[in-house]
Amino acid sequence: MTYKLILNGKTLKGETTTEAVDAATAEKVFKQYANDNGVDGEWTYDDATKTFTVTE
């Protein structure tokens, strides 16, 4: 399945996607991606759209 991440960081905004077997796996990938890019904030997940959002 394809999962999407929306980044609403103070210095980085954008979107990315990943292929993962489940939401938990996608979340690990996205949290590492956000961490690597210096984005740390509040996370939400919408199962209907398979979209994670992180907002600083």
Rank of each mutant, 00 (worst) to 15 (best):
G14Y: 13
E27C: 11
T11K: 13
T25H: 13
A48K: 12
T53R: 07
D22K: 03
L5Y: 02
M1S: 15
G14C: 13
L7S: 03
G41T: 02
T16F: 15
T18A: 09
T11L: 12
K4C: 06
L12K: 13
V29M: 10
K10Y: 10
E56I: 09
A20P: 01
D36H: 09
A26Q: 00
E27I: 08
Y3R: 01
N35F: 15
A24P: 09
L12Y: 15
A26L: 00
A20E: 05
A34V: 09
A20C: 07
A48G: 09
E27H: 10
T25F: 07
K50F: 10
G9R: 04
E19T: 14
Q32P: 02
L7C: 08
A48W: 07
D22A: 04
E15L: 10
K4H: 14
L12R: 10
Y45M: 02
L5P: 01
M1A: 12
E42H: 13
Y45L: 02
T44G: 06
E19K: 13
G41F: 03
K10L: 14
T44I: 08
V39K: 02
G9Q: 04
A48Q: 12
N37F: 15
L5K: 00
V54N: 02
T11H: 15
Y3C: 02
E27F: 15
A34Q: 02
K4F: 13
F52I: 01
G41R: 01
V39I: 15
F52R: 00
K13W: 13
T53S: 06
Q32T: 08
A48M: 12
E56G: 05
K10D: 07
A26F: 00
T16S: 08
E15R: 08
N35I: 15
G14A: 13
T17F: 14
V29T: 10
E27R: 08
V39D: 01
K31F: 06
N35V: 13
T49Q: 06
V21C: 10
G38K: 07
M1K: 12
E56C: 05
T2Q: 10
T51L: 05
A48D: 11
G14H: 10
I6G: 02
T51D: 01
T25K: 07
D47S: 13
T18K: 04
K50N: 09
W43V: 02
T51A: 04
T44A: 08
T53F: 10
T53N: 05
V29Y: 15
D40I: 14
T25I: 07
A20Y: 02
A48Y: 12
T55V: 09
E42A: 10
E27V: 05
V54K: 01
T55Q: 07
G41C: 02
L7T: 05
D22Q: 03
Y3G: 01
T25G: 09
M1I: 14
E56D: 08
W43D: 00
A26D: 00
E19R: 11
T2F: 09
W43I: 03
G41S: 02
A48R: 09
K10S: 11
T44H: 13
G38N: 11
Y33H: 04
E56F: 09
A23C: 12
A26I: 01
Q32F: 05
K13M: 09
L7I: 15
E27L: 14
E15V: 15
N8P: 03
N35P: 02
N37D: 03
V54T: 03
T11Y: 14
W43C: 02
A23E: 07
V21A: 13
D36M: 12
A23G: 05
A48V: 13
Y3T: 01
T49D: 04
D47Y: 08
V21M: 13
L12H: 13
K31V: 06
T17R: 09
N8D: 11
T16I: 15
E56V: 09
E42P: 04
T55P: 01
T2Y: 09
G41N: 02
G14F: 11
Y3E: 01
N35R: 15
E56L: 07
D36A: 13
A23W: 14
D40T: 15
I6L: 07
T2K: 11
E42V: 14
Y45H: 02
Y45E: 00
T55L: 06
V39H: 04
T17I: 10
V21S: 13
K28R: 13
A48S: 12
F30A: 01
D40F: 15
G14Q: 11
T25Y: 08
N37L: 15
T2M: 13
D40C: 12
N37W: 14
L12F: 15
Y33W: 14
V29E: 07
K31A: 05
N8G: 04
K4P: 01
D40W: 15
W43G: 00
K31G: 03
T44K: 08
G38I: 04
K4Q: 06
Y3A: 01
G9I: 07
E42Y: 14
D22N: 09
K13R: 11
